[in-house]
Design a protein around this nucleic acid. Sequence first.
DNA 1: CCGTAAAAAGACAAAATACTCCTTAATCTA
DNA 2: TAGATTAAGGAGTATTTTGTCTTTTTACGG
Lengths: 156, 156
Amino acid sequence: MLFVDFMLLSSACVYGLRASVYLASVSDDSYVSITKISEELDISRHFLTKVLQKLTDNDIMESMKGPKGGVRLTRPGDEIVLLEIVAAIDGMDILTECALGLPGCGTAKPCPIHDQWADTRDEIRQMLTETTLRNLVDRGKAGNLRLTEEGEFKWA
Amino acid sequence: MLFVDFMLLSSACVYGLRASVYLASVSDDSYVSITKISEELDISRHFLTKVLQKLTDNDIMESMKGPKGGVRLTRPGDEIVLLEIVAAIDGMDILTECALGLPGCGTAKPCPIHDQWADTRDEIRQMLTETTLRNLVDRGKAGNLRLTEEGEFKWA
DNA sequence: CCGTAAAAAGACAAAATACTCCTTAATCTA
DNA sequence: TAGATTAAGGAGTATTTTGTCTTTTTACGG
């Protein structure tokens, strides 16, 4: 499922976000297998496994092996903000790096675009920090919004 | 000159922006050779040549071959906004695509993050639309801001 | 204890991006 | 007109990201 052009977030990060929203939407405390998630969201199972490992490594999810195993969120959806997921998968660079790609750009050694970009970056950070998984689930359920390419996803 | 991590803009786009700001800063009407630009900004000459071809294809720059040839901006720096350069090199996808990577996401078929992301995207678009090359040159000259990694660049 | 189901881990393949090199075409200068 | 210089064009390389496949480890259920 390759989307040809440039995006703000990597594919891996988008998959992680969608899976996290999905888990938040079905959350009783039970584990959900990655196979199930990959089928619901139409994402490559093996690739999603690797992506979600980063989230378990960062204590955003926890996993259990064996039958009845799978993954689940470590905290309720209203306590997990999007920034945690983005940071775990793509890192914080998008929120710290210079838009001109000059390493070390900052208030001490700014490039001409620095202040302009810093404002925009703060908007992104604020959005990612203020939005919880629960917010997205509520919005998704209220508006019957899609979580898959074809829009066939049914909210629990 | 490979910057390892994820960035909002591609390397090609960053090179194009830096070269454009450079040209705007030295602009009399003369052509500047790409070799000169690549040396001033410490960018691979061959790669920069390809990037700048996209800008000439999009009538942001014009070129001339032969001795005394090179490239120059087609318009004064205060008439060229950053969005033109970004669109020519990276395309408009960053300003139209869904943050969840769902093709076709929009007001008609929104994903749960759509409205949230649309606001942020508008901030980026506004910044890229309101900022001219001249703005960056003025800011660069006023603050002696760097345009290269080592900050050795001298504004004309 | 055994078979099965699931995540974890690692090797591999494909695609996109970033970069290099070589040849060709255009234009200037002598 | 000839030689030099510079952009354009095309082919090839390297690295990263994305995706696949196989094996191993862990846990459940009989």
